[in-house]
Computed example of a mutant assay.
Amino acid sequence: MIRISLISILFSLSAMAQSEPFVLEATTDKNVFLFFPSPITKALPGNADFRFGYNQETAEKFGVLKAVGPRGESTLHVITDDQSVYSFVVRYNPNTSIFEYFFDGSESVGNIDKKQKPNSRDDISDSSIEGKKIIDSDYYGETDSKQTDFEFCKELLARKDFYKNFYKKQSDVVLRLTNIGYRKDKTFICLAIENNSTLDYDLNFIQFNKVAKKASRKSNYQAIEIKPIPNYSYQKFERVASMETKRAVYVFEKLSIDKNKLINIEINELKGERNIQLAVGDQFINNPNK
């Protein structure tokens, strides 16, 4: 059964071959990230000169390509959850300058007929063609896993805004929540500041507070500040020039809140009064998008 399933997939891949395959370049000392519109289910590298890692436990839309040694050329076929097939030629280049590839689906060479789809992800088990399960220490080392969080931040910002109309506005300055992600016990809050005014916006501070939903206006309610993990946030806000939009990701230890509480996000303008507060409820904080 394994042999029949494997032959079926390889036959389908050969039938979809491109006249001019997409060329990827990789090196031994840097990681090349491939981002797909659908989660990766299988990877079929041509030989052992290159490694392609992807998460087989929790399907994700990106994988990591790296050269094993300073040599060679190979092929790489990637099959995604929507049964799209991507075909690449992989070449070693120590001077490569491209470390992220984003695909929108148009690069696919075809789609596997559902009748040819294996019964399960484990049907293909030949270690000579199986993509390797991604482990942080394979590529980054045990003490440098923070880099994977930065790449996840970049992926979140590359996606389309998940929340289209979640914002507050003050004098032509807009604070917008665009997405909330979750990965490895960390919560990633994606924000955008749109400055539609003719005056630059300089940030004095951004603050995240946990507050009660129905705090009495006559009493001083307690706000508990929640601080991002030091040195983990990505593209933190400083200045947003006139008619400019900037995006940032703030990274926290895993966040969850009671249904009677909110996370209040406040931006405060330096030498100005265009201050904005944006309240985010438990239904968003407790249900992040992976």
Rank of each mutant, 00 (worst) to 15 (best):
I4N: 07
F11V: 06
F11N: 15
A15I: 09
M16P: 01
A26K: 14
A26L: 06
D29E: 04
K30R: 14
L34I: 12
F36I: 02
P39N: 07
I40Q: 07
A43M: 10
N47V: 09
A48S: 12
A48W: 03
D49F: 11
F52E: 13
N55L: 06
E57V: 13
A59K: 13
E60M: 08
K66W: 06
V68G: 15
V68N: 15
G69F: 14
S74I: 06
D81Y: 09
Y92I: 12
Y92A: 08
N95K: 14
S97M: 02
S97D: 06
F102R: 03
F103G: 00
D104N: 12
E107W: 02
D126Q: 10
I129L: 14
K132R: 15
K132W: 14
S137T: 12
Y139D: 06
Y139L: 10
G141A: 11
E142P: 11
T143A: 15
K146C: 08
K146I: 10
F152Q: 01
F152W: 03
L156R: 02
Y163T: 02
K164C: 00
Y167D: 00
D172E: 05
V174M: 08
V174E: 07
V174N: 04
L175E: 05
L177A: 02
G181E: 01
R183V: 07
K184G: 12
I189T: 08
E194M: 00
L199F: 01
A215I: 12
A215L: 11
E225Y: 11
E225V: 06
I226T: 13
K227E: 13
P228D: 02
F237V: 03
E238M: 04
E238A: 07
V240A: 00
V240Y: 00
A241D: 04
A241C: 03
K254V: 04
I257E: 08
D258I: 05
D258Q: 14
K259D: 12
K261C: 07
I265E: 05
G272R: 06
N275P: 04
Q277C: 08
N286S: 06
